[in-house]
């Protein structure tokens, strides 16, 4: 498997490349810029405006009373997880050279990622804010 545009041994995927690796390359840049806002804002806000020690059930519940924050958190979750999983895929392809092992490890990783996305999406959209 893996006869794609991302060549081993220092090959480059370039802007304008087509195929899966070309789109994956572009996705990493676009989602990277999106996360530059979504993730960095989230990190700085939670650490330096609210403060990690002040976070509790009540802070999350009052935030999620506004559906726009749920949407923000889901967008952050989805972009971060897909960006991170594609990064993990590149790392695995760089270091695992046996096709069978690679397929197994990637399959396990994708299943875990799907479960994480489902669990995160589930709690974001079904959480009931107590009265």
């Amino acid at each position: 498997m893996m006869a794609s545009g991302r060549r081993r041994g220092g090959g480059h995927v370039r802007p304008g490349d087509r195929g899966f690796e070309g789109w994956a390359w572009l996705f990493m840049r676009v989602s990277g810029v999106v996360l530059l806002f979504l993730a960095v804002f989230h990190l700085l806000w939670m650490h330096y405006v609210i403060g990690v020690d002040n976070l509790n059930f009540q802070t999350v519940a009052s935030r999620w009373a506004n559906p726009l924050w749920r949407l923000y958190d889901f967008a952050l979750l989805a972009f971060a997880l897909v960006h991170g999983m594609n990064g993990l895929r590149m790392v695995l392809e760089d270091y695992i050279h046996r096709a069978g092992t690679l397929l197994t490890v990637k399959s396990v990783a994708y299943v875990l990622a799907f479960l994480l996305l489902s669990a995160g999406g589930y709690i974001i959209f079904t959480f009931h804010v107590p009265a």
């Binding site: 059930f57 999350v60 979750l77 994480l116 669990a119 995160g120 589930y122 709690i123 974001i124 079904t126 959480f127």
Partner: peptide, 8 residues
Amino acid sequence: IADIFLLG
């Protein structure tokens, strides 16, 4: 994701 899931 695991810790936030515990909200439920």
